[in-house]
């Protein structure tokens, strides 16, 4: 259990997928204008990622050697299935959040952070099932932490009199850079 938690914490903080590996920046920048949307996307991404990593591990064992170059393609299909399943589940159980997320939910399928984490977690030698799932869960939680913190900071600076040159996307990118600098201090710390 402690090994599971260690992998989750490392994947979420020290190897943060957005702030450490610079993947998944499109939703990070474009969906962080509102806190509720950022939180919803974070929760949905975490759910999809955990399921997709579990499925990918199972497929990895079944896949013949000759299919190895096709792995990214196959994984994209797996992610799409996981997204579809999550969407349907959400529609049934949490219709309110489902309606709020709207078009952003299917867009998770094209989030490169998800494919990135799946490929990275399966790259480890003899990765066990729990390790891969922990990596997926931690990566999703890290994504959620980054996007929610970013949304809150954007909320805080939305009242500032930012120079016109930096208003909007430029400041968002500079801000993401400072956040990445901060998180670089966590590298290797856990």
């Amino acid at each position: 259990m402690s090994a599971f938690i260690a992998v989750v914490i490392t994947a979420a903080l020290a190897d943060n997928i957005v702030l450490g590996k610079m993947l998944g920046l499109c939703p990070f920048i474009s969906l962080s204008r509102r806190l509720d949307i950022a939180l919803g996307v974070g929760v949905a991404t975490t759910a999809v990622l955990t399921v997709a990593c579990a499925l990918a591990w199972c497929l990895e064992g079944l896949l013949p050697e000759a299919f190895a170059p096709l792995r990214p393609l196959i994984f994209i299909a797996v992610v799409a299935c996981a997204v579809q399943a999550t969407t349907m589940l959400m529609q049934l159980t949490l219709p309110l959040i489902h309606r709020m997320l709207g078009v952003f939910l299917p867009l998770i399928a094209t989030n490169c952070a998800i494919l990135g984490i799946m490929l990275l977690s399966l790259q480890q030698e003899n990765a066990s099932f729990t390790q891969v799932v922990a990596h997926g869960l931690g990566g999703g939680l890290g994504f959620m932490l980054a996007i929610v913190a970013f949304a809150l900071i954007r909320l805080r600076i939305s009242e500032a009199q930012v120079p016109p040159t930096f208003r909007g996307a430029p400041l968002a990118v500079i801000n993401a850079g400072w956040m990445a600098l901060a998180f670089s201090g966590l590298a290797g710390a856990f």
Partner: peptide
């Protein structure tokens, strides 16, 4: 303190403060 002991940089107060700044609104 944690990063000073386990982090990869020699001193890490600046990084601890910056991480705190990221998480302050949270």
């Amino acid at each position: 303190i944690w990063l000073r002991q386990h982090g990869s940089h020699s001193d890490s107060i600046a990084f601890a403060i910056l991480i705190g700044n990221v998480l302050a609104p949270l």
